[in-house]
């Protein structure tokens, strides 16, 4: 074999294969957003936000902690807006490193989230005044969590990501269980199992990338 220049040839086949895997893993890592930054803000928003809902609007109208009635929704909304901004900034910063079909896909997926959440918010706002407080709360929370589960499952289909599909299915499942259990219980289940699921997803994703 004639080398085309004096650059050092790889040492042996096993080392070359290891080198290939190292470089592939390195760039793969550099081109994926940190899973902790993508999942933890949402996990924390759900854990804290829905826990406040449970404490203030417990099952059968119970009040475990007499917080101001506006506080749980305000806290959840703020935390979710913060999470949306964080994942949006982190995601777009990473996607700028590549130009082509991949970042178009990512942009379309990001836009899907915003459009779907806006549509659901406008729809649910129409019913907020005609439903009892606890039912309206369940409609909002159940709808948003259903949307989140479905979008994670769709995202998993785009990137062929089994873990993301698992997270989406899990979120959808616990949402249905919570809705059937009723107002109050839904908040507790979503806080612990939903928020906890996202924190776990971020941790697993990060450990796999390391």
């Amino acid at each position: 074999m004639t080398p085309i220049d004096d650059d050092a040839p790889p040492l042996d086949p096993a080392e070359s294969l290891a080198l290939i895997e190292r470089e592939r893993a390195k760039l793969g890592r550099d081109l994926s957003p940190d899973p902790r930054l993508m999942f933890w803000p949402w996990g924390i928003a759900w854990l804290v936000g829905f826990a406040l809902f449970f404490l203030r609007f417990g099952p059968d109208g119970r009040v475990f902690v007499d917080l101001p009635a506006w506080l749980p929704l305000a806290a959840l909304a703020l935390l979710m807006i913060g999470a949306g901004i964080t994942t949006g900034v982190v995601g777009s910063r990473v996607s700028r490193r590549v130009t082509g079909p991949s970042n178009r896909q990512g942009a379309m997926y990001g836009i899907s989230w915003s459009v779907a959440f806006t549509a659901f918010s406008i729809l649910f706002a129409q019913f907020s005044d005609v439903l009892p407080e606890s039912q309206a709360g369940l409609l909002w929370a159940g709808g948003m969590v259903a949307l989140t589960g479905a979008l994670y499952m769709a995202g998993a289909a785009i990137w062929n990501d089994r873990n993301m599909f698992l997270l989406g299915s899990w979120t959808s499942l616990i949402n249905i269980v919570g809705i059937l259990a009723g107002p109050g219980w839904h908040s507790l289940i979503v806080a612990v199992a939903g928020g906890g699921g996202m924190v776990a997803a971020g941790l697993i994703g990060w450990l796999r990338l390391r």
């Binding site: 190292r22 081109l31 590549v98 991949s102």
Partner: peptide, 21 residues
Amino acid sequence: HAQARLRVVSALSVLRDDDRI
């Protein structure tokens, strides 16, 4: 078959078809 170019090509192989870094 040169360490530097093997590294370059390996890294680029992570990109999907038509993606540019």
